[in-house]
Design a protein around this nucleic acid. Sequence first.
RNA 1: GCCGACGUAGCUCAAUCGGCGGAGCAUCCGCCUUGUAAGCGGAGGGUUGUGGGUUCGAUUCCCACCGUCGGCUCCA
Length: 597
Amino acid sequence: MENINPEAYQESKLYRIRHSTAHVMAAAVLEKFPEAKIAIGPPIEHGFYYDFDLPRPLTQEDLEELEARMKEMLKETREFDYEEISPAEAQELFADQPYKLELIRDILERGTDEYGEKSDSPPQLSIYKSGDFVDLCRGPHVETTKEINPKAVKLLNVAGAYWRGDSERPMLQRIYGTAWRKPKELRQYLAWLEEVKQRDHRRLIRELDLLSFHEDAGPGLAYWHPRGALMRKTIEDFWRDQHLEGGYDFAYTPHIGKAWLWEKSGHLAYYKDSMYAPMDVDGQDYYIKPMNCPFHIMIYNSQLRSYRELPLRWAELGTVYRYEKSGVLHGLMRVRGFTQDDAHIICTPEQIEAEVLRVLRFSLAMLRAFGFEDFQAYLSTRPGDAIGEPARWDQAQESLRRAIDAEGLDYQVDVGGGAFYGPKIDLHIKDALGRSWQLTTIQFDFNLPERFDMTYVGEDGAEHRPYVVHRALLGSIERFFGILVEHYAGAFPIWLCPEQARLIPIADRHIEYAKAVEEQLQQAGLRAQTDASSSRMGAKIREAQLMKVPYMLIVGDREAEDETVSVRLRSEENLGAMTVEDFIVRAQEAIQTRAVQ
RNA sequence: GCCGACGUAGCUCAAUCGGCGGAGCAUCCGCCUUGUAAGCGGAGGGUUGUGGGUUCGAUUCCCACCGUCGGCUCCA
């Protein structure tokens, strides 16, 4: 998938094609359901949608019928005619379209556009007509349906969507479709969707025997099987080593704490819906932690702190539990129990700039080690309901901005998008399929230091309030793992593979030699196993291929005689025979460089 | 949480109109002893997600619940 920036997209012909195709779809829906109420239908990243209030739920068959009708409509030449109209005309025209009337009201009264976003231009109502279909719309559209290739259009699925994205308002039916310039582009997009499906971590974690979920034991709770657990250990060991080198200290904190902690932190006031119900311990309410911060603060406050010991950088792979609503759980990407690669940086105002740059660099190095190269940064600044001194906000935001500049990252500013307690940087990576995932978050907190009265004694002998920065680089281990699975389609870099090499004896008489080589490889620190099953060699190779084992080492009479292994890669490349020593050197090199094969 | 679809063996899927639940793969047991992606034969495996209801009879129809999937909302 090509990636184009949002501004260029909105200017593009493709954008107009999709917008116009959405109108044609709405025309087909209105033809089939004359009583339908239409809402909005914008182009989106890979297509378009349109929301409808319909007399009955749509079926897959309806979708096919609508698509067929759209294609007929597209074969007729219809012009998309723009017209500016007065409020009275608009109200007349859309008299039986309550959603449109609401939009008209908003455009006139609030100066927003038809998607509810602030518009710079003075309120002006406009419509587009094509055939019998008229829609309140500012455009832009194609000139005529001739510009839309019916063979490059497809309706994809139906889903529920709240009117204006508001869960208090009616649930509409949203039809998603896609449209491209050429049929070939549509085919490529459909192939891409198929690739997305093939790489779905929910399928791969089962097929590769890495993790499972158990609906009967609790949804949204991940079970790490031995192969997955070995990968997780490898990730965590690397993470710890890096943190040690990176100037962090470690903390381990409890999984539960008394209610006052969460009252004091404000979580019970603002976050209770996402917390599990308390448990009674000796008549006291204890909550399972949804975050690690209050515990790290307990450590900080366990003694008087001097400016001389700052900055403190305390890292913890902290497992937290959050009650996520049932409809939002999604494999490893959204779970109810997960381990954050958390850390808190506690420092003086003088140190903050250097600390922010340091943590940003650290994060980029960490993500690069896992094979991610394409980063975008998002800076979220002070919202309206912020707490904390404006001067501190300014300093924090500036330090974040300068760090991004220093690293030369592309970034966007989400003005007012910060949490009420502090500004933040989020880092997104692009995966092998061009999809964007948020991983790192570097987040100031002006709230907790106040609430827990965190202080340090400064050079002047007076008490000062430290800066606190929360940060998670990988985010959650579970989610990061899911992203790795999809990014590599299960064919992980060798250093991460649970099984790095598989010995494949051709006949039973070669098992003894295979086991000897296995032992030799294990001595050299390689994760190797012998397939001693009664299957034929072809079946063993197939099995190892499906498990995406990077090295298949075939051993038969020749290899046993020469003390070699015949090396096959999961790429299907056959390297031929080499001595066991040569193979070990080769594999260790790939592991040490964290090579992406 | 909301809208819709779905839930049959470990996995992928069958089962006419409501009439004794099957197949492939996987597993186990044999045989075969193999040269770069599936050798052959046999066996075991199910309260059809759970609980109600309708019916002489329910995988099939109805209701509730649980879960999964596609979205929406949410993600201080």
